[in-house]
């Protein structure tokens, strides 16, 4: 953590210096050639304005999963995540066996089906990085590549990650994946490549462009299940907090006292 703060300090100066130039450049995000050919036209990309101020700890992003609504056999959230973050770009190397590849490909969100040993009750739920307030992955990372953003998102700075996989050892939720193979055709919004570790980042690019929710939440809603709610855990009026007030919920592995940003009801 200390490292990240230090780096922030280092960059502050640059940010101020370049802030004036920023505005002219915003349009570029809208697409190739747009600013050139159509000056004067107000441009927008899919997203609202990109963020120009550092993220602050006034918000803490989180998810609430209502397992009662999570449907058996549905994997809309998983597919949406794979699409949004380009995880489906990975292809199995030719000489690789299916089983082994299944264990090696990147997974940011997965469906888990549980049965209570005593009552036999079945529960379905999606598992992803729980965005711990006290993330073990960040504690153990030797280079500070694993870090927690001020807004509570835990992610990997792939410029610093050396691929030691210690964070994967330390994560109690098995939330992280290592990229085992060369990648091609990455998405602009989600740079990723061989030899680094990655995990759910609550669609951080959407956050920075001010979008309302994550890919998994949208997909779940589109299926009509509405099992996942996204929002700001620090805003008492956010949908997620309203829901948290309404439903009994808990953290997985509460005993570890990591204060996760992803909560579950009905488990």
């Amino acid at each position: 953590m200390g490292k990240a703060t230090e780096m922030n300090d280092k960059t502050d100066r640059t940010d101020q210096a370049i802030d004036s130039g920023r505005r002219e450049f915003i349009g570029v995000a809208a697409g190739v050639g747009a600013a050139m050919v159509a000056p004067g036209v107000i441009l927008h990309a899919v997203a609202a304005t990109p963020r120009s101020q550092p993220v602050s700890s006034d918000v803490r992003w989180g998810l609430l999963v209502d397992t009662a609504k999570c449907a058996d056999g549905c994997s809309a959230c998983v597919e949406a995540c794979n699409e949004e973050n380009g995880l489906n770009l990975q292809t199995k190397p030719e000489r690789e066996s299916d089983l082994k590849w299944d264990a090696q490909k990147s997974v940011w969100i997965r469906k888990v089906k549980l049965q209570d040993n005593q009552t036999g009750r079945i529960t379905n739920l999606p598992m992803m990085c729980q965005h711990c307030e006290h993330p073990p992955c960040v504690d153990v990372c030797p280079t500070g590549a694993s870090f927690k953003r001020a807004d509570g998102i835990v992610m990997v700075d792939r410029h610093l990650c050396i691929g030691c996989r210690y964070c994967m050892m330390a994560c109690p939720y098995k939330a992280r994946s290592f990229i085992h193979d060369e990648l091609q055709g990455q998405l602009t919004a989600v740079p990723r490549g061989k030899g680094c570790v990655e995990s759910c980042n609550l669609c951080v690019h959407r956050r920075d462009y001010g979008e309302a929710s994550t890919a998994c939440v949208d997909a779940c809603a589109a299926e009509g299940h509405h099992a996942i709610v996204f929002g700001d855990l620090k805003d008492p009026n956010s949908p997620i907090n309203q829901k948290l007030r309404e439903l009994p919920s808990r953290q997985i592995r509460e005993d570890l006292e990591l204060n996760t940003g992803v909560r579950y009801s009905g488990v």
Binding site: V140, P142, V197
Partner: peptide, 25 residues
């Protein structure tokens, strides 16, 4: 065995002192 052995220099210049791994270096 690192995923990115060529970045060893990163490991030598960026320390996270809460990591036992960094201490081990």
């Amino acid at each position: 065995d690192l995923g990115r052995p060529e970045r060893l220099i990163v490991a030598m210049t960026h320390y996270n002192f809460s990591s036992i791994f960094a201490w081990n270096i």
